[in-house]
Design a protein around this nucleic acid. Sequence first.
RNA 1: AGCGAGGUAGGGUAGUCUGGAGUGCCCGCCGGGCUCAUAACCCGGAGAUCGGUGGUUCAAAUCCACCCCUCGCUACCA
Length: 555
Amino acid sequence: MYMVDTEKRVIITAALPYSEAIPHLGNFVGSILPADVFYKYSKLAGYDSIFICGSDQHGTPIEIRALKEGVEPKEFADKVHKEIKHILERFGCSFTYYGKTDSDSNKRAVYEIFNALYKNGFINKVDSVMPYCNIDKRFLTDRYIEGVCPYCGFEGARGDQCDNCGHLLNPSELIRPYCGLCHNNEIEFKKTTNLAIALDKLQPEILEFVKGRMGSWSKNAANKTISYLEQGLEAREITRDMKWGFEVPLEGYKDKVFYVWFDAVIGYIGISMDWSDQWEQYWKGKDTKLIQFMGKDNIEFHTMMWPGILIGSDLGYVLPHTIYAYEYLTAKGLKFSKSRGVGLNMGNALEIAGSDYWRFALMYLAPESSDTDFTIALFVDIVNKIMNGKIGNYVHRVLTLLKNSGLKASELVEDEKSMDKVAVLTRKYAEDFEALKMREALRELVAIADIGNEMISSSKPWELIGKDGVKQGSEGRAKELLGGMVSIVRRMGVLMWPFAPDASSKILKRFGISEPRLSDLEKPLKELNLEGLGPVFSKLSDKQLKELERFEEDS
RNA sequence: AGCGAGGUAGGGUAGUCUGGAGUGCCCGCCGGGCUCAUAACCCGGAGAUCGGUGGUUCAAAUCCACCCCUCGCUACCA
């Protein structure tokens, strides 16, 4: 019935969270959550899919953060990695493997790819002059050199941008520059040579790749990429003068490390290597579809640089099939924060409400095509009205009716005709998913609940079924009505799994389903376990609301 | 400043590629119904100069031009 090619292998990835801090809800809904939801759908549909993600551990911010805390960067990054992994699991994410970029496997993958790029002639040397702090004995990235803004005279402008007037800056433009780390002014501009990937040489092949694939990309990713390509790509540096990272395996560059973006995108492969020996069947499989989710700030890395790396190294890895870049979930009137304790991050969100509530509400508002505001009022509405009122209440009232009727589920009759609308919505649900319109798919589920509730209202089953069973002579009618209603409960349980896995499992357990598949919907109803009936969802309590309000902006 | 995305009832969105009556959805609001269910559910209604101006067209939310506002990127944040 569902036109799914189960022979096809699928790799699903989400942009790797940077292991400096616990992601906030906006980060979560911008890549990992939709990726996880899509992965769960792919399992429902019967795809041979894997879901790969992990922590991005290198780069200057982590090195400096560790320095400040007086620990080794690796120790710091591994600690945060464990915290992120734990919180994502608590949010119901079912990664095939959640790894990290600072691993031996990823180092092997990076070296293999770098050596191939080098051999194939796509590695350039690039000379540049960079600020160097003679006290800290290190080169400073644009962010970590400060001084007076040449445009507005603001003291404390950073080398990349002035926070006061918004002007974009170069470090050399700063007046009276000083080191952003030790605040001394012993700055020297020194020459350094780094390695770069020759995206300019790879441009024709990247262009060809983009043209062939952009039909299945999100609009922002496709258009931005075309615009970049029209302007022409430049060589992009892949090494840095710092200690934390994978050292460059080339004579003359061994005191440098690979640039964090380079080993982060390759991390998708490196992390898969840590997962299983089967990794190659996926990454080098001819028919593998690579589907990648990310926030809009990550587009160019996935649409040009990453394909450029794969094309230039020519090692037989699959290129991205679908690139879906989410807009931002903004938090008007709410504090979304990455730093602990200050705002609503993934950790304290779970202390207020269970993961199902966040997953469902966030996907209901998922910023698929434009920035979307997340407010407490919206969250409360979605939980109380949609999840609790429509879906949870429907499940509960039908199962209660069934229990009161004393009828066995196996003797219920499903009236095909009354199920037509529901079947159409289920088909739309699958189509929405295939088109990555997951928010729409979730709305089909809500529409199914609407149909269920309407069926109950119009057929008035309480006239046939009392607390002590079905009224004399109404058994046939009761079996018909309950057949449709109960099968909708099962359907909602299955279709809800990607969005609210806990509640879904709770419902499906009654039907004896542990690994839901869309094909379960075609099976006749079996006996149900109606032990301990209770609400599937509940409304947010006053206590929960109070806790949420703590995260409202004071202004 | 350049490039990309977005601006649609009180709020949130779909529709825009491929022009055809302001067409749909969720919340809120108003009115009615129901009593199986969690003060839950169902039905009906009101509410929109489709960011602005100008243009093309028999016809524009949709196509073109210019302008305003929000977000992102601009190659050394990741």
